[in-house]
Structure formats: structure tokens, C-alpha cells
Design a protein around this nucleic acid. Structure first.
Lengths: 124, 124, 124, 124
DNA sequence: GTGGTCTAGACCACC
DNA sequence: GTGGTCTAGACCACG
């Protein structure tokens, strides 16, 4: 469970935590059923207040990534591989959709966008 | 100069104004040297306070889109076509870069991303 | 952090605040990493509205003197001694450059200007 | 009577006009008794409104540089050489005084300031 | 009429 | 408690 916080980011701390944990769950870096460290430990580890960690945990639970068992800790939800894949696709589709819309408003064509995307990959 | 404000957007009002004006300048919808309406007129027009309009204007000036002349009004900067094209490319590259990075963190391959991009265009 | 506001000055309030804070940072009166008081406290302290204080803070941040962390406060940027010295020199050079240019336009020679400068120092 | 107006200057237009005319009178570029062109001509020449020219003229008259003779035009006041020299010195002293004060607040010594002044002259 | 600055409030997101 | 955003006024400098 490695998280990096940037105090100078435009994103709030709790969002940074949320996105990194969610990403690691979606990628399989953190497995189903695995136990997350207690909030206070994370907070101390990241050198941030407990509040943003708590908020991130709440949103992760709200979005079905984790489940809290009172008195026992928080655990990664038992999401099937198929469900993970679906969630990944949905999120990716939204990200790209937004980017494509913005680019089209700037007057870029499909070809141009695809060219830029490919240029971002080392071995195209 | 048509702007649409969404009070329910997650983006602050001044950002919405900024992005729409900047976009229209980049697309050539507003031409170099053209005079923008006075901030108070825009403010009344959009039914918002003067503050967010002024803040948008300030950022547009900071980013070189417009220049304001006290007592006379604000005017679109004399950006050459080449400069506009460069600015457009730079902004588009940044948008796509961010989106691609996020998608790669989710484990998507270049092919998959390109496929989604193409699917967002009517006649690909 | 002592600031003096003159309501009768030709300079706007936010500029007065900006210059005094920046000066104190450049002189080392306020140290790197130190936390500035909250803008509302400064505003109450100086008996001015929050607006000019906030504007001063914004410009201080724009110029790299401070960094603000939402929800935590604003802190003096970690500028090295060397950087501070460079900034000081740059600003001083600009001030003198302007003054010398104006004086030369009035027809003063180098000697005359130097003489006046020296006369401004108690024990030259 | 050559004046250059910068629309992007931080100084208002009427001040730019004032300073340039006053400077030329102080330097003897415009002689005592000489007639200034009519306001409308200057305004057309500089491509600015009549208002800032009028305001500059008012301040020049207020400060004793010119005198308006109704129906005949405006003329450079008959200032003796000694008076011109005194005015020049006074203005120069004030400019340098301000610059020196600002530099001292930045912690510069007399020597350092003099060194910078000298560096601004081609043949020191 | 134009922008520049300011006041005295308010509500919200974040820590 | 901290800064971020906004409202609805006001007065002033500038052209």
C-alpha cells in the first residue's frame, strides 16, 4: 500500500488517497479480502491529518471498493474479476470521453487525437 | 460572445467563463483586436456578480489572451495564427497526456485507448 | 509580522501589504517555512476587508514568496539564501535602473547622481 | 514635440504626456515662450482622446510649466535657467531619495548602490 | 462609461 | 479554523 501525497497538487488530499487506493484495487495490486491498515497508521505514514484519510475511506466504501467491519478493520470488497474489468472500462471510457470532447472543442480531428495518444506510448 | 453558466457544475463560475472565452479565442470565434463587452455587462448578462467575471478576465489577461486598457475596455490580444495553433496544440497535448496517464494506470493498452477514442467519433 | 497601512497612500492597500510582506521575507525577518497568520486575522488586525489581504496573498504566491495549502494555511516558500539574495539583487537593480534612467533624461551625469546617493547616507 | 504613448504602460496616458512634456521643458528641448500645439492636434497625433491631453495640460499649468492665454494658445512659461536647474535638482533628488530608501530597506549598502549606478553608465 | 479597488457580509470545501 | 468562492452594493481614477 504505497501512496504519494502532493501538498501542491490541485486535487484535495482525500481525493489523492481515494484515487490511488481505488486504482490499486482495480489493477489488482491490492487483492480482494486484503485488509487495509488502520486509518491512524495511514495518517501517520502519510503525515497528514486523520480527516482526509477518513473521508477517502468513506468514499471508497460508498463506491463499493472496501467494507468496514466494526471492531475488525476495513477489507477490500470481494469484487469478481469481471466486475473489476467492467469498473475499469467504465472509468476509462469516462476519462477518454471528457478528453476527446475537450479536444474536439479545440478543433482537433480524430486522426490528430489518435496520433497524440500513440505518441505517448514508448513502443508504438 | 455566448457563455453558458451552470450553477451546479463542480467548476467555479470564473473557470467556466475563462474556459469558454479562451476556447472561443483559440477557435477563432473571437478575433484578434476585437473588443470584449464590459465586465459589468457580462455580469448582468450571465446574472452573476462582477467578481467571477473579473477573475476570469484577470486570468485571461495573465495567460495572454486579452489585454485591458483602463477606461477603454478589454481587447483580444493580437495573437498570430501560428501562435494560436501552438497554444491549441499545447493545451490538447496536455489534456490527452493526462487522460492517457490515468488510463495506463488502470492497465489499458495503447490499442484499447485508441479504440475508445475512435468510438467517440460518429464516422470513424 | 507587522504591517502598516496608510489609507492616504497613492498605492492601493493590497500593494502596501504585498510590498511589506515580500520585503520582510527578502530581509529574512520572516523565515522559510514559517506560517503566516490567516488572512481573516490579518484583515481584522489591519482593519481592512479580506479582499485586499487576499489579493496581496495571491500575488505573493504568484511571485513565489508563499504557498497556500487549503484548509491548513499559508507558508513562506522554502527559498534558499542564495535565491533570496538573487531576488534582492534583481529587485534592487530594477529600482536603480529606473531611477537612473529618469535622472539621465533630466540631464544628470553619473557623478551628480552618485553624489546625491552618497548624500542620502548618514556617514558616507 | 515628440511624445510616445504606451497603451500597455502602468502609468496613465495623461501622466505619460505630462512627464514627457515636463522633461523636455526641463532639458531645454522646448524653450521658454515656445507655443505648444493645440490640444486637438496633439490628441489626433497621439491617437488618444482629448481628455488625457487636456488633463496633462492642466497639470503642466498647475505646476508652472506652461501658461494658457485664452484665445491665443498655450506657451511654455518663462522660467529662468536657474529656476529650471533648481526644479531639475529637486525632482532628481526626490527620485533618487525614493530609490535609495527602497534599496536600503532591502539591505543594500551605500557602496553597493553606487556600484550599480555606475554600472548603468556606458563609460564609467 | 470603463475598469480598479474596496466593504461587509455569506456559504462551502478542506483539514 | 482555514482558504475558496460568491453576492450586492460602493467610490474612485481614467478616457
Amino acid at each position: 500500500m504505497d501512496i504519494v501525497i502532493s501538498q501542491s497538487s490541485d486535487k484535495p488530499i482525500y481525493t489523492q488517497i481515494y484515487e490511488q487506493i481505488a486504482g490499486q484495487i482495480l489493477c489488482g495490486q491490492i487483492s480482494s479480502g486484503e485488509r487495509l491498515p488502520p486509518i491512524r497508521a495511514v495518517s501517520a505514514n502519510l503525515q497528514v491529518s486523520v480527516i482526509p484519510v477518513k473521508k477517502a475511506w468513506e468514499q471508497l466504501e460508498r463506491d463499493g471498493y472496501i467494507t468496514t467491519q466494526i471492531g475488525r478493520g476495513t477489507f477490500v470488497s470481494g469484487l469478481g474479476k469481471k466486475m473489476l474489468q467492467e469498473k475499469r472500462s467504465g472509468i476509462a471510457a469516462k476519462i477518454i470521453e471528457d478528453a476527446v470532447r475537450d479536444c474536439r472543442e479545440l478543433g482537433l480531428s480524430c486522426k490528430e487525437i489518435v496520433a497524440i495518444v500513440k505518441s505517448k506510448f514508448p513502443q508504438s
